[in-house]
Write a protein that binds this DNA or RNA. Structure first.
Lengths: 120, 120, 120, 120
DNA sequence: GTGGTCTAGACCACC
DNA sequence: GTGGTCTAGACCACA
Protein backbone atom coordinates (compact mmCIF):
# COMPACT_ATOMS: atom_id res chain seq x y z
CA UNK A 1 0.00 0.00 0.00
CA UNK A 2 1.29 3.39 -0.89
CA UNK A 3 0.41 6.13 1.53
CA UNK A 4 -0.50 9.60 0.39
CA UNK A 5 2.28 12.05 0.89
CA UNK A 6 1.87 15.73 1.39
CA UNK A 7 2.41 17.37 -1.97
CA UNK A 8 5.37 19.71 -2.16
CA UNK A 9 4.80 23.18 -0.78
CA UNK A 10 6.00 24.83 -3.96
CA UNK A 11 3.28 22.96 -5.85
CA UNK A 12 0.64 24.09 -3.38
CA UNK A 13 1.73 27.68 -3.88
CA UNK A 14 1.50 27.19 -7.63
CA UNK A 15 -2.09 26.06 -7.14
CA UNK A 16 -2.74 29.14 -5.08
CA UNK A 17 -1.46 31.37 -7.91
CA UNK A 18 -3.48 29.41 -10.40
CA UNK A 19 -6.61 29.91 -8.33
CA UNK A 20 -6.14 33.65 -8.42
CA UNK A 21 -5.79 33.54 -12.17
CA UNK A 22 -8.88 31.40 -12.58
CA UNK A 23 -10.89 33.65 -10.31
CA UNK A 24 -9.67 36.58 -12.41
CA UNK A 25 -8.26 38.27 -9.34
CA UNK A 26 -4.97 38.39 -11.22
CA UNK A 27 -5.42 39.13 -14.92
CA UNK A 28 -2.91 39.44 -17.76
CA UNK A 29 0.15 41.56 -16.92
CA UNK A 30 -0.81 41.74 -13.27
CA UNK A 31 2.35 42.01 -11.21
CA UNK A 32 2.66 39.16 -8.77
CA UNK A 33 3.76 39.81 -5.20
CA UNK A 34 7.56 39.79 -5.03
CA UNK A 35 9.25 36.61 -3.97
CA UNK A 36 10.11 38.17 -0.63
CA UNK A 37 6.59 39.52 -0.03
CA UNK A 38 5.08 36.21 -0.91
CA UNK A 39 7.52 34.34 1.30
CA UNK A 40 6.65 36.51 4.27
CA UNK A 41 2.93 36.32 3.64
CA UNK A 42 2.94 32.55 3.36
CA UNK A 43 5.56 32.09 6.07
CA UNK A 44 7.73 30.12 3.73
CA UNK A 45 11.35 30.20 2.68
CA UNK A 46 11.93 32.60 -0.26
CA UNK A 47 13.64 29.81 -2.16
CA UNK A 48 10.38 27.88 -2.12
CA UNK A 49 8.51 30.78 -3.70
CA UNK A 50 11.32 31.19 -6.23
CA UNK A 51 10.90 27.60 -7.19
CA UNK A 52 7.17 28.11 -7.65
CA UNK A 53 7.69 31.13 -9.88
CA UNK A 54 10.31 29.31 -11.95
CA UNK A 55 7.91 26.43 -12.38
CA UNK A 56 5.05 28.70 -13.43
CA UNK A 57 7.33 30.48 -15.86
CA UNK A 58 8.24 27.19 -17.48
CA UNK A 59 4.55 26.51 -17.89
CA UNK A 60 4.13 29.86 -19.61
CA UNK A 61 1.72 31.04 -16.94
CA UNK A 62 3.85 33.92 -15.73
CA UNK A 63 6.80 35.80 -17.21
CA UNK A 64 9.61 37.75 -15.62
CA UNK A 65 11.18 41.14 -16.24
CA UNK A 66 14.59 41.07 -14.64
CA UNK A 67 14.86 43.54 -11.83
CA UNK A 68 11.18 44.40 -11.92
CA UNK A 69 9.18 41.35 -11.06
CA UNK A 70 6.92 38.55 -12.21
CA UNK A 71 3.76 39.14 -14.24
CA UNK A 72 0.77 37.11 -15.31
CA UNK A 73 1.19 35.93 -18.92
CA UNK A 74 -1.25 36.92 -21.61
CA UNK A 75 -2.67 33.46 -22.08
CA UNK A 76 -2.28 32.50 -18.44
CA UNK A 77 -5.98 31.92 -17.98
CA UNK A 78 -6.13 29.55 -20.91
CA UNK A 79 -3.08 27.64 -19.76
CA UNK A 80 -4.13 27.37 -16.14
CA UNK A 81 -7.54 26.23 -17.22
CA UNK A 82 -6.04 23.50 -19.38
CA UNK A 83 -3.64 22.46 -16.64
CA UNK A 84 -6.25 22.25 -13.91
CA UNK A 85 -8.89 20.75 -16.12
CA UNK A 86 -6.55 17.93 -17.04
CA UNK A 87 -5.84 17.32 -13.36
CA UNK A 88 -9.49 17.44 -12.49
CA UNK A 89 -10.60 15.09 -15.23
CA UNK A 90 -7.79 12.61 -14.77
CA UNK A 91 -7.53 12.50 -11.01
CA UNK A 92 -10.34 14.09 -9.05
CA UNK A 93 -13.32 13.17 -11.16
CA UNK A 94 -12.60 9.45 -11.51
CA UNK A 95 -12.12 9.28 -7.74
CA UNK A 96 -15.47 10.99 -7.22
CA UNK A 97 -17.30 8.70 -9.59
CA UNK A 98 -15.69 5.69 -7.99
CA UNK A 99 -16.81 6.90 -4.60
CA UNK A 100 -20.32 7.61 -5.81
CA UNK A 101 -20.49 4.08 -7.06
CA UNK A 102 -19.30 2.66 -3.75
CA UNK A 103 -21.72 4.84 -1.83
CA UNK A 104 -24.64 4.16 -4.14
CA UNK A 105 -25.13 7.83 -4.85
CA UNK A 106 -27.01 8.40 -8.06
CA UNK A 107 -26.42 11.21 -10.46
CA UNK A 108 -29.78 12.79 -9.82
CA UNK A 109 -28.99 12.81 -6.11
CA UNK A 110 -25.82 14.68 -6.97
CA UNK A 111 -27.77 17.31 -8.82
CA UNK A 112 -29.93 17.92 -5.77
CA UNK A 113 -26.89 18.20 -3.53
CA UNK A 114 -25.35 20.65 -5.94
CA UNK A 115 -28.37 22.86 -5.51
CA UNK A 116 -27.95 22.81 -1.75
CA UNK A 117 -24.36 23.98 -1.90
CA UNK A 118 -25.07 26.76 -4.36
CA UNK A 119 -27.82 28.21 -2.24
CA UNK A 120 -25.37 28.70 0.63
CA UNK B 1 -1.81 30.16 4.05
CA UNK B 2 -2.66 26.79 5.36
CA UNK B 3 -0.97 23.94 3.55
CA UNK B 4 -2.71 20.66 3.03
CA UNK B 5 -1.50 17.79 5.15
CA UNK B 6 -2.08 14.14 4.46
CA UNK B 7 -4.26 12.31 6.91
CA UNK B 8 -2.52 10.08 9.45
CA UNK B 9 -1.35 6.68 8.29
CA UNK B 10 -3.61 4.88 10.74
CA UNK B 11 -6.57 6.76 9.25
CA UNK B 12 -5.52 5.83 5.72
CA UNK B 13 -5.39 2.19 6.74
CA UNK B 14 -8.88 2.57 8.20
CA UNK B 15 -10.06 3.87 4.83
CA UNK B 16 -8.44 0.91 3.15
CA UNK B 17 -10.33 -1.47 5.41
CA UNK B 18 -13.52 0.49 4.82
CA UNK B 19 -13.05 0.20 1.06
CA UNK B 20 -12.82 -3.55 1.30
CA UNK B 21 -16.04 -3.63 3.27
CA UNK B 22 -17.83 -1.35 0.81
CA UNK B 23 -16.64 -3.44 -2.13
CA UNK B 24 -17.88 -6.51 -0.29
CA UNK B 25 -14.48 -8.13 -0.51
CA UNK B 26 -14.69 -8.50 3.24
CA UNK B 27 -18.15 -9.42 4.47
CA UNK B 28 -19.55 -10.01 7.95
CA UNK B 29 -17.37 -12.24 10.15
CA UNK B 30 -14.50 -12.13 7.66
CA UNK B 31 -11.24 -12.38 9.57
CA UNK B 32 -8.99 -9.42 8.91
CA UNK B 33 -5.27 -9.93 8.41
CA UNK B 34 -3.60 -10.10 11.81
CA UNK B 35 -2.02 -6.95 13.14
CA UNK B 36 1.43 -8.31 12.45
CA UNK B 37 0.61 -9.54 8.95
CA UNK B 38 -0.94 -6.23 8.04
CA UNK B 39 2.03 -4.36 9.45
CA UNK B 40 4.46 -6.35 7.36
CA UNK B 41 2.33 -6.04 4.22
CA UNK B 42 1.93 -2.28 4.59
CA UNK B 43 5.46 -1.78 5.89
CA UNK B 44 4.34 0.07 9.00
CA UNK B 45 4.78 -0.51 12.69
CA UNK B 46 2.38 -3.04 14.27
CA UNK B 47 1.31 -0.35 16.72
CA UNK B 48 -0.01 1.71 13.86
CA UNK B 49 -2.17 -1.12 12.60
CA UNK B 50 -3.29 -1.83 16.16
CA UNK B 51 -4.38 1.77 16.40
CA UNK B 52 -6.39 1.44 13.20
CA UNK B 53 -8.08 -1.73 14.41
CA UNK B 54 -8.86 -0.21 17.81
CA UNK B 55 -10.37 2.79 16.06
CA UNK B 56 -12.51 0.63 13.79
CA UNK B 57 -13.62 -1.46 16.75
CA UNK B 58 -14.84 1.66 18.54
CA UNK B 59 -16.79 2.53 15.43
CA UNK B 60 -18.43 -0.88 15.59
CA UNK B 61 -17.04 -1.80 12.18
CA UNK B 62 -14.92 -4.70 13.39
CA UNK B 63 -14.82 -6.77 16.56
CA UNK B 64 -12.11 -8.73 18.28
CA UNK B 65 -11.70 -12.18 19.72
CA UNK B 66 -8.71 -12.32 22.01
CA UNK B 67 -6.03 -14.66 20.82
CA UNK B 68 -7.82 -15.22 17.53
CA UNK B 69 -8.08 -12.02 15.56
CA UNK B 70 -10.27 -9.21 14.30
CA UNK B 71 -13.45 -9.82 12.34
CA UNK B 72 -15.81 -7.71 10.25
CA UNK B 73 -18.88 -6.79 12.30
CA UNK B 74 -22.39 -7.72 11.25
CA UNK B 75 -23.49 -4.20 10.39
CA UNK B 76 -20.07 -3.08 9.19
CA UNK B 77 -21.34 -2.25 5.73
CA UNK B 78 -24.06 0.00 7.07
CA UNK B 79 -21.68 1.80 9.39
CA UNK B 80 -18.93 2.27 6.83
CA UNK B 81 -21.46 3.58 4.36
CA UNK B 82 -22.70 6.19 6.84
CA UNK B 83 -19.14 7.17 7.78
CA UNK B 84 -17.90 7.57 4.23
CA UNK B 85 -21.06 9.22 2.96
CA UNK B 86 -20.74 11.90 5.60
CA UNK B 87 -17.10 12.45 4.62
CA UNK B 88 -17.96 12.59 0.96
CA UNK B 89 -20.79 15.06 1.33
CA UNK B 90 -18.92 17.33 3.73
CA UNK B 91 -15.46 17.34 2.21
CA UNK B 92 -15.10 15.89 -1.25
CA UNK B 93 -18.26 17.11 -2.85
CA UNK B 94 -17.93 20.80 -1.92
CA UNK B 95 -14.37 20.75 -3.28
CA UNK B 96 -15.58 19.27 -6.55
CA UNK B 97 -18.33 21.83 -6.94
CA UNK B 98 -15.91 24.61 -6.20
CA UNK B 99 -13.53 23.28 -8.79
CA UNK B 100 -16.30 22.92 -11.36
CA UNK B 101 -17.17 26.51 -10.80
CA UNK B 102 -13.56 27.61 -11.28
CA UNK B 103 -13.18 25.52 -14.41
CA UNK B 104 -16.55 26.50 -15.84
CA UNK B 105 -17.64 22.92 -16.08
CA UNK B 106 -21.39 22.61 -16.31
CA UNK B 107 -23.44 19.88 -14.81
CA UNK B 108 -24.47 18.47 -18.16
CA UNK B 109 -20.81 18.24 -19.12
CA UNK B 110 -20.24 16.27 -15.95
CA UNK B 111 -22.95 13.85 -16.91
CA UNK B 112 -21.27 13.19 -20.24
CA UNK B 113 -17.91 12.63 -18.56
CA UNK B 114 -19.55 10.22 -16.20
CA UNK B 115 -20.74 8.21 -19.18
CA UNK B 116 -17.19 8.01 -20.53
CA UNK B 117 -15.81 6.64 -17.30
CA UNK B 118 -18.52 4.06 -16.96
CA UNK B 119 -17.97 2.66 -20.43
CA UNK B 120 -14.36 1.85 -19.55
CA UNK C 1 -10.24 -20.57 37.40
CA UNK C 2 -10.04 -17.08 36.10
CA UNK C 3 -7.76 -14.84 38.10
CA UNK C 4 -8.54 -11.18 38.56
CA UNK C 5 -6.40 -8.78 36.58
CA UNK C 6 -6.01 -5.13 37.28
CA UNK C 7 -7.41 -2.75 34.71
CA UNK C 8 -4.95 -1.10 32.35
CA UNK C 9 -2.99 1.87 33.62
CA UNK C 10 -4.51 4.20 31.05
CA UNK C 11 -7.96 3.19 32.30
CA UNK C 12 -6.97 3.83 35.91
CA UNK C 13 -5.80 7.29 34.94
CA UNK C 14 -9.13 7.84 33.23
CA UNK C 15 -10.85 6.94 36.48
CA UNK C 16 -8.65 9.38 38.32
CA UNK C 17 -9.65 12.16 35.96
CA UNK C 18 -13.28 11.13 36.29
CA UNK C 19 -13.03 11.31 40.06
CA UNK C 20 -11.78 14.87 39.88
CA UNK C 21 -14.71 15.79 37.69
CA UNK C 22 -17.22 14.08 39.98
CA UNK C 23 -15.75 15.80 43.02
CA UNK C 24 -15.96 19.07 41.15
CA UNK C 25 -12.28 19.72 41.64
CA UNK C 26 -12.11 20.11 37.87
CA UNK C 27 -15.08 21.92 36.40
CA UNK C 28 -15.99 22.83 32.84
CA UNK C 29 -13.14 24.38 30.82
CA UNK C 30 -10.62 23.53 33.51
CA UNK C 31 -7.26 22.89 31.86
CA UNK C 32 -5.95 19.43 32.63
CA UNK C 33 -2.28 18.91 33.41
CA UNK C 34 -0.39 18.59 30.14
CA UNK C 35 0.37 15.10 28.90
CA UNK C 36 4.02 15.50 29.85
CA UNK C 37 3.29 16.95 33.30
CA UNK C 38 0.84 14.18 34.06
CA UNK C 39 3.30 11.56 32.83
CA UNK C 40 6.00 12.85 35.14
CA UNK C 41 3.64 13.15 38.10
CA UNK C 42 2.28 9.62 37.67
CA UNK C 43 5.63 8.18 36.62
CA UNK C 44 4.30 6.69 33.43
CA UNK C 45 5.16 7.11 29.79
CA UNK C 46 3.65 10.16 28.05
CA UNK C 47 2.08 7.84 25.50
CA UNK C 48 0.04 6.22 28.23
CA UNK C 49 -1.37 9.56 29.37
CA UNK C 50 -1.98 10.50 25.73
CA UNK C 51 -3.98 7.33 25.38
CA UNK C 52 -6.06 8.21 28.42
CA UNK C 53 -6.75 11.70 27.13
CA UNK C 54 -7.63 10.43 23.66
CA UNK C 55 -10.03 7.97 25.27
CA UNK C 56 -11.68 10.65 27.40
CA UNK C 57 -11.96 12.91 24.38
CA UNK C 58 -13.83 10.23 22.47
CA UNK C 59 -16.17 9.94 25.43
CA UNK C 60 -16.83 13.67 25.19
CA UNK C 61 -15.49 14.20 28.69
CA UNK C 62 -12.60 16.42 27.69
CA UNK C 63 -11.70 18.36 24.55
CA UNK C 64 -8.45 19.48 23.06
CA UNK C 65 -7.00 22.68 21.68
CA UNK C 66 -3.92 21.95 19.61
CA UNK C 67 -0.81 23.49 21.01
CA UNK C 68 -2.62 24.56 24.18
CA UNK C 69 -3.87 21.58 26.08
CA UNK C 70 -6.84 19.50 27.17
CA UNK C 71 -9.88 20.95 28.90
CA UNK C 72 -12.86 19.58 30.78
CA UNK C 73 -15.90 19.50 28.50
CA UNK C 74 -19.10 21.35 29.30
CA UNK C 75 -21.16 18.28 30.04
CA UNK C 76 -18.28 16.29 31.46
CA UNK C 77 -19.99 15.87 34.82
CA UNK C 78 -23.09 14.43 33.25
CA UNK C 79 -21.10 12.02 31.08
CA UNK C 80 -18.79 10.86 33.84
CA UNK C 81 -21.78 10.30 36.08
CA UNK C 82 -23.46 8.12 33.47
CA UNK C 83 -20.26 6.20 32.79
CA UNK C 84 -19.47 5.50 36.43
CA UNK C 85 -23.04 4.78 37.41
CA UNK C 86 -23.24 2.11 34.75
CA UNK C 87 -19.99 0.59 36.00
CA UNK C 88 -21.16 0.71 39.58
CA UNK C 89 -24.51 -0.87 38.93
CA UNK C 90 -23.15 -3.58 36.66
CA UNK C 91 -19.97 -4.55 38.45
CA UNK C 92 -19.51 -3.24 41.94
CA UNK C 93 -23.02 -3.52 43.26
CA UNK C 94 -23.65 -7.15 42.27
CA UNK C 95 -20.34 -8.08 43.92
CA UNK C 96 -21.39 -6.32 47.09
CA UNK C 97 -24.77 -8.00 47.21
CA UNK C 98 -23.17 -11.38 46.58
CA UNK C 99 -20.74 -10.74 49.41
CA UNK C 100 -23.52 -9.61 51.75
CA UNK C 101 -25.32 -12.82 51.01
CA UNK C 102 -22.21 -14.90 51.76
CA UNK C 103 -21.55 -13.00 54.97
CA UNK C 104 -25.16 -13.01 56.08
CA UNK C 105 -25.21 -9.27 56.34
CA UNK C 106 -28.73 -7.92 56.27
CA UNK C 107 -29.80 -4.74 54.67
CA UNK C 108 -30.67 -3.09 57.95
CA UNK C 109 -27.19 -3.90 59.23
CA UNK C 110 -25.82 -2.16 56.15
CA UNK C 111 -27.82 0.92 56.96
CA UNK C 112 -26.30 1.06 60.42
CA UNK C 113 -22.79 0.66 59.04
CA UNK C 114 -23.49 3.43 56.61
CA UNK C 115 -24.30 5.70 59.51
CA UNK C 116 -20.98 4.88 61.15
CA UNK C 117 -19.00 5.83 58.09
CA UNK C 118 -20.84 9.07 57.58
CA UNK C 119 -20.22 10.20 61.13
CA UNK C 120 -16.47 9.92 60.57
CA UNK D 1 -0.54 7.94 42.08
CA UNK D 2 -0.32 4.33 43.06
CA UNK D 3 -1.70 1.92 40.53
CA UNK D 4 -3.60 -1.16 41.56
CA UNK D 5 -1.58 -4.30 41.28
CA UNK D 6 -2.92 -7.75 40.69
CA UNK D 7 -3.20 -9.47 44.05
CA UNK D 8 -1.06 -12.57 44.46
CA UNK D 9 -2.44 -15.73 42.95
CA UNK D 10 -2.08 -17.69 46.17
CA UNK D 11 -4.34 -15.13 47.88
CA UNK D 12 -6.93 -15.45 45.16
CA UNK D 13 -6.93 -19.20 45.61
CA UNK D 14 -7.38 -18.69 49.35
CA UNK D 15 -10.46 -16.61 48.61
CA UNK D 16 -11.76 -19.37 46.41
CA UNK D 17 -11.40 -21.89 49.24
CA UNK D 18 -13.02 -19.45 51.63
CA UNK D 19 -15.98 -19.04 49.29
CA UNK D 20 -16.57 -22.76 49.30
CA UNK D 21 -16.55 -22.79 53.06
CA UNK D 22 -18.93 -19.86 53.29
CA UNK D 23 -21.30 -21.44 50.77
CA UNK D 24 -21.12 -24.62 52.87
CA UNK D 25 -19.97 -26.62 49.88
CA UNK D 26 -17.05 -27.68 52.04
CA UNK D 27 -18.03 -28.29 55.66
CA UNK D 28 -15.97 -29.31 58.70
CA UNK D 29 -13.57 -32.23 58.05
CA UNK D 30 -14.21 -32.08 54.32
CA UNK D 31 -11.06 -33.23 52.53
CA UNK D 32 -9.75 -30.52 50.19
CA UNK D 33 -8.52 -31.46 46.71
CA UNK D 34 -4.88 -32.48 46.89
CA UNK D 35 -2.27 -29.90 46.06
CA UNK D 36 -1.57 -31.63 42.75
CA UNK D 37 -5.26 -31.92 41.83
CA UNK D 38 -5.86 -28.31 42.69
CA UNK D 39 -2.80 -27.19 40.75
CA UNK D 40 -3.94 -29.03 37.65
CA UNK D 41 -7.51 -27.79 37.96
CA UNK D 42 -6.45 -24.17 38.38
CA UNK D 43 -3.56 -24.46 35.93
CA UNK D 44 -1.17 -23.21 38.52
CA UNK D 45 2.18 -24.30 39.87
CA UNK D 46 1.76 -26.79 42.77
CA UNK D 47 4.00 -24.59 44.90
CA UNK D 48 1.43 -21.85 44.64
CA UNK D 49 -1.33 -24.09 45.94
CA UNK D 50 0.99 -25.32 48.68
CA UNK D 51 1.52 -21.74 49.72
CA UNK D 52 -2.23 -21.20 49.84
CA UNK D 53 -2.79 -24.25 52.00
CA UNK D 54 0.03 -23.26 54.35
CA UNK D 55 -1.50 -19.83 54.68
CA UNK D 56 -4.96 -21.22 55.40
CA UNK D 57 -3.52 -23.61 57.92
CA UNK D 58 -1.86 -20.71 59.77
CA UNK D 59 -5.24 -19.02 59.85
CA UNK D 60 -6.75 -22.12 61.43
CA UNK D 61 -9.12 -22.56 58.52
CA UNK D 62 -7.77 -25.92 57.42
CA UNK D 63 -5.64 -28.57 59.08
CA UNK D 64 -3.36 -31.22 57.69
CA UNK D 65 -2.86 -34.91 58.31
CA UNK D 66 0.57 -35.81 57.02
CA UNK D 67 0.41 -38.22 54.14
CA UNK D 68 -3.38 -37.99 53.90
CA UNK D 69 -4.37 -34.49 52.99
CA UNK D 70 -5.86 -31.19 54.03
CA UNK D 71 -9.20 -30.87 55.75
CA UNK D 72 -11.59 -28.10 56.63
CA UNK D 73 -11.19 -27.13 60.28
CA UNK D 74 -14.05 -27.39 62.76
CA UNK D 75 -14.48 -23.69 63.20
CA UNK D 76 -13.50 -22.82 59.62
CA UNK D 77 -16.82 -21.22 58.89
CA UNK D 78 -16.57 -18.92 61.88
CA UNK D 79 -12.99 -17.94 61.04
CA UNK D 80 -13.60 -17.36 57.35
CA UNK D 81 -16.63 -15.31 58.19
CA UNK D 82 -14.62 -13.13 60.55
CA UNK D 83 -11.78 -12.76 58.06
CA UNK D 84 -13.98 -11.84 55.13
CA UNK D 85 -16.27 -9.66 57.15
CA UNK D 86 -13.32 -7.62 58.32
CA UNK D 87 -12.14 -7.22 54.75
CA UNK D 88 -15.58 -6.29 53.57
CA UNK D 89 -16.23 -3.75 56.27
CA UNK D 90 -12.81 -2.15 56.09
CA UNK D 91 -12.19 -2.09 52.37
CA UNK D 92 -15.15 -2.82 50.15
CA UNK D 93 -17.92 -1.12 52.03
CA UNK D 94 -16.23 2.26 52.51
CA UNK D 95 -15.40 2.29 48.80
CA UNK D 96 -19.02 1.57 47.97
CA UNK D 97 -20.33 4.30 50.23
CA UNK D 98 -17.82 6.74 48.80
CA UNK D 99 -18.94 5.87 45.31
CA UNK D 100 -22.60 6.18 46.23
CA UNK D 101 -21.89 9.62 47.54
CA UNK D 102 -20.08 10.64 44.34
CA UNK D 103 -22.85 9.22 42.20
CA UNK D 104 -25.64 10.65 44.31
CA UNK D 105 -27.18 7.29 44.89
CA UNK D 106 -29.41 7.27 47.92
CA UNK D 107 -29.84 4.41 50.31
CA UNK D 108 -33.43 3.85 49.34
CA UNK D 109 -32.36 3.58 45.73
CA UNK D 110 -29.91 0.92 46.80
CA UNK D 111 -32.67 -1.06 48.42
CA UNK D 112 -34.64 -1.06 45.20
CA UNK D 113 -31.60 -2.17 43.20
CA UNK D 114 -31.03 -4.97 45.69
CA UNK D 115 -34.51 -6.23 44.96
CA UNK D 116 -33.76 -6.33 41.26
CA UNK D 117 -30.66 -8.44 41.69
CA UNK D 118 -32.33 -10.91 44.01
CA UNK D 119 -35.15 -11.55 41.63
CA UNK D 120 -32.69 -12.76 39.00
C1' DG E 1 5.78 25.05 25.27
C1' DT E 2 1.47 22.07 23.50
C1' DG E 3 -0.79 17.84 21.34
C1' DG E 4 -0.51 14.18 17.36
C1' DT E 5 1.69 10.62 15.16
C1' DC E 6 4.97 7.03 14.30
C1' DT E 7 8.60 3.65 15.16
C1' DA E 8 10.99 0.03 17.79
C1' DG E 9 10.85 -3.32 20.94
C1' DA E 10 9.13 -5.51 25.06
C1' DC E 11 6.03 -8.37 28.11
C1' DC E 12 1.60 -10.40 29.17
C1' DA E 13 -2.63 -13.33 28.74
C1' DC E 14 -5.35 -16.06 25.76
C1' DC E 15 -5.90 -19.91 22.33
C1' DG F 1 0.17 -18.00 16.99
C1' DT F 2 -3.27 -13.88 18.52
C1' DG F 3 -4.44 -9.15 20.55
C1' DG F 4 -3.50 -5.66 24.59
C1' DT F 5 -0.58 -2.77 26.96
C1' DC F 6 3.47 -0.17 28.10
C1' DT F 7 7.94 2.08 27.51
C1' DA F 8 11.37 4.90 25.11
C1' DG F 9 12.37 8.13 22.02
C1' DA F 10 11.62 10.66 17.81
C1' DC F 11 9.62 14.22 14.58
C1' DC F 12 5.99 17.34 13.19
C1' DA F 13 2.66 21.33 13.33
C1' DC F 14 0.56 24.73 16.09
C1' DA F 15 0.88 28.72 19.30
Amino acid sequence: MEFKKTSAIYAQIAEYVGDNVLRKNWEADYRLPSIREMAVALEVNPNTVARTYAYLEEQGIIYTQRGIGYFVAKDAYKRVLAWRKKDFLQNDLPAVFKMMSLLNISFSELQILRGNYESK
